[in-house]
């Protein structure tokens, strides 16, 4: 007789309220209210961090002045997700790290308006070095998904 194996269903349900802090709160407000993308400069090495953070972990120094970046930039890395994963948007979708003009680091977002019928061709259109521009959504909630990238 086969021994029975029991499975106990479980689900973790933990609510978090991540405080975005002063720096990110300003970034999100600028994005929502003024359709501007603001980077922040390290007070020591001067690199413009995008997305902005309160300090530079390399210099171990606080962030300094705000700098507007974009509205165009260059793809530095990308992928096209084809598989459906639990909790993810429905595939296919493309995301890219884009170094916005005036920033020293690259920021992640969706790339919209692509034709995924031929995956390799879609990937070719996103190759490293490709120029993109920022597109703001009509309805903005003060979240990172208030904007997207599209090919120039």
């Amino acid at each position: 007789m086969a021994e029975e194996l029991v499975f106990i269903p479980g689900r973790w349900d933990i609510t978090y309220n991540y405080a975005a802090g002063k720096v990110s709160s300003k970034f999100f407000a600028e994005l929502r209210d003024n359709k501007r993308l603001m980077g922040i400069k390290c007070s020591r090495c001067g690199r413009v961090m995008m997305p902005p953070r309160g300090f530079c972990e390399r210099c171990f120094a606080p962030a300094g002045e705000w700098v507007e970046v974009g509205p165009e930039g260059t793809i530095q890395a990308f992928t096209i997700t084809v598989e459906k994963f639990e909790g993810n948007p429905d595939p296919p979708f493309a995301v890219a790290y884009v170094q916005l003009d005036g920033a020293d680091t690259a920021m992640l977002n969706y790339v919209r308006g692509l034709d995924f019928s031929d995956l390799n061709r879609a990937a070719e259109s996103l190759r490293v070095g490709t120029r993109v521009r920022v597109v703001y959504k009509e309805q903005r909630a003060g979240e990172v998904t208030d904007f997207e990238y599209e090919l120039v």
Partner: peptide, 21 residues
């Protein structure tokens, strides 16, 4: 959670960036 959670990243896609580079 502020900047990258909404983009459907996981271990596979983050490594895809490495492959692309």
């Amino acid at each position: 959670p502020r900047y990258e959670l909404p983009f459907g990243l996981n271990a596979i896609s983050m490594t895809s960036f490495q492959a692309v580079r």
